[in-house]
Design a protein around this nucleic acid. Sequence first.
DNA 1: AGCTCATGTGAACGACTTTTACATGAGCCG
DNA 2: CGGCTCATGTAAAAGTCGTTCACATGAGCT
Lengths: 246, 246
Amino acid sequence: MSWRKEQRRAERGYHHGNLKEALLQAALGLIAEKGAAGFTFADAARMAGVSAAAPYRHFRDRDELLSSIAQRGFEQFEARLTSAWDDGRPDTVTAFERVGKAYLAFARDEPAFYNAMFESGLPVDANPALQAASERAFNIIRAAAERLAALAPPGTPRPPAMMMALHIWSMAHGVASLFSRGDAARRKLPMSPDELLEAEVLIYLRGLGFPTDRRPQKKSAEPPPVPPEASSGSGVPPGGPWGKPK
Amino acid sequence: MSWRKEQRRAERGYHHGNLKEALLQAALGLIAEKGAAGFTFADAARMAGVSAAAPYRHFRDRDELLSSIAQRGFEQFEARLTSAWDDGRPDTVTAFERVGKAYLAFARDEPAFYNAMFESGLPVDANPALQAASERAFNIIRAAAERLAALAPPGTPRPPAMMMALHIWSMAHGVASLFSRGDAARRKLPMSPDELLEAEVLIYLRGLGFPTDRRPQKKSAEPPPVPPEASSGSGVPPGGPWGKPK
DNA sequence: AGCTCATGTGAACGACTTTTACATGAGCCG
DNA sequence: CGGCTCATGTAAAAGTCGTTCACATGAGCT
């Protein structure tokens, strides 16, 4: 039954017209199904209804397709983090945690992108555009950390924002990689990955001396009035950041 | 020049004698070089001086070889964590951090194992033995967290040990994955991965109310004498957990 | 109408995975 | 010691991929 290919071609003519995009979409689907390792250039071509050689008109090789996807992934990632951060509204801590949740949500909702970005084993510094995209995404976390660091309670040494950003990133990435994806999520947890990360971040922030019982701060002037309980020990949410056993 | 194979065979006879082990070693080397994705069954066979079909006498397929390596990796991992934990000597917090360092050290010293264990994309629950080995390794962290939780300062709600273990694991894994390996380590950091993780854990523990200025505790009876500054805010090490900018 | 160049095709090469039928020889049994 | 057997190895073959090359097609410009 090789009339299928003829059929396809009859429908769309000799030239595909939008092969590059079609290949990206096909690859995305395949990676979601079988992982970046299992994804095959030939399969993507087949799925787009073209010969195995056609993709080479649009990508130097399989790796370039993969890294294109990773790049696109970082762009969407950045967009989602940006939107989650929402410039620190309604208050910095709340927004900060929303960023953490967005990280997990992305890993969950876009397994193909996440896979290509973090688990495909392709060298980040191979493609400068890829590296730049990754950099921009991280800068969201960094900017958020910067704002948070500026809020550090007086009396304690101010934590380096870069360090905070790296810490938060590692937490989110660790939770996402270990517990929030595919089969690794099979490990039975006492709480959801989201809750796990939220508690982790809250405890961490408390360790830095931040008040972690979130209450809407005045959105007009954020830095100025640091709540009085900032440097005291009373900022503990009832029941601790891990909440009550439900 | 195909006399090489004949040569090899002349040296060792028709039967290899220890092929399984030789294949595991060869694979380990190849994975270290080119990653689990780039590693090839045929290459391992070649390296062991046997035909491409020979490995199938010892492993059902490529994946089984990979998962054997992962399993062996988890065993060594467990051994190193156990030794680092050293049953909580000289004091729980110190030992706990040593475990974190051991995690990073393993990722650094045994990239092939680490790769097979965490980055090869093979389903953890495929092989029950693999799953068990992974479980045992995690249990070290869990046991350590248990001991640490028991030390929680009075007056604050006691954190669930399981949660702590998962948090620590995710931190260590996040730092290792993002910053402590191969090319991803290319990202220029303000501090070493070890320091990064140490600071992260210290801040986290402080967030839980633990005293984090380590001083040798009496090794005889550990739980009893919680230092007085446990629940106050004065447990901040000079300069904070991130130390002084050197 | 005709040219040109981007885009797609088919065939071919070498490498890899896996299966199959056959070869070898180590260890046991009489 | 002679012979049997079975674990272990080999060669060959089929099927898949990645990748390249010479060639085909037709969209868009002149």
